[in-house]
């Protein structure tokens, strides 16, 4: 095992960098973070369209969400890989392709999380804000979203963890993230598949479990802060 780590440890962590593009665990994490940062605003827009009463917004948004969520992630990746370059007009790198697929796929999941979060804020809050004279937009901005965000926090983190796991599918289109590298190493070494794939599993476990725990701690911290008496006024 130690020999494996010594020979392939760095390759596993950062791929062929600096002699090639960034890969390995570093790429996995970068992809995950980038995908979430882009998918979240998309999710918010989709969610708003979903709950809108304007038919022109509501029906297409609902259709998009149902179609994307009924399709396997792998299929979305293939669609991005084969057809996005033609749509955009020029070739796309593997990373961009994967990122696009992840953003589309997770955007729809975030849309549902955001929608549930917004609808979870009691109707009385909306009524009280409108009764004061706040416009629909201002009510969402100052009253509904802040409360919805707090409701959504655990689901958002769950979705982030799910996105990190989805990056492993990129290995199928040849992207050198951590699972692809594990397979490469295995085909070279041949005789230690248990150690190699075990290490791969353990890596993901550490990453994902760690993140979930961190989110748990943060969630408790946020709840406690809200109960403490604030010092400054307003």
């Amino acid at each position: 095992m130690t020999e494996l780590i010594r020979n392939y440890g760095v390759y596993f962590l950062i791929g062929q960098f600096p002699h090639g593009p960034l890969g390995g665990l570093a790429l996995t994490m970068l992809l995950g973070v980038a995908a979430v940062l882009l998918a979240l605003p998309l999710g918010v827009l989709l969610a708003l369209a979903r709950i809108s009463r304007r038919r022109l917004l509501h029906w297409p948004a609902t259709a998009v969400v149902y179609v994307v969520r009924g399709t396997p992630a792998l299929m979305v990746i293939f669609w991005a890989y084969f057809f996005l370059p033609a749509l955009i007009g020029h070739k796309m790198g593997q990373v961009t392709t994967m990122l696009a697929a992840l953003v589309i796929f997770n955007g729809t999941y975030f849309a549902e999380v955001v929608r549930a979060g917004i609808q979870g804020v009691g109707r009385g809050q909306m009524e009280a804000a409108r009764a004061l004279g706040l416009s629909h937009a201002k009510t969402l901005r100052w009253i509904v979203f802040p409360q919805a965000l707090r409701n959504m926090l655990p689901s958002l983190v769950n979705q982030f963890v799910a996105t990190l796991k989805e990056t492993s599918l990129a290995s199928i289109i040849g992207l050198q993230e951590v699972s692809f590298i594990a397979s490469q190493v295995n085909s070279q070494v041949v005789v230690h598949p248990v150690a190699i794939y075990g290490a791969l599993a353990l890596t993901f476990f550490a990453l994902c479990f760690g993140l979930s725990r961190l989110a748990h701690v943060l969630e408790k911290r946020v709840a406690v802060q809200r109960l403490e008496l604030p010092q400054a006024d307003g």
Binding site: G124, E127, A128, A131, L132, P146, P230, D233
Partner: peptide
């Protein structure tokens, strides 16, 4: 308008 269930905004201070 004053509601039966008060409907204060829980994430904001009284002020």
């Amino acid at each position: 308008f004053v509601f039966q269930q008060f409907n204060l905004f829980p994430h904001l201070s009284v002020l």
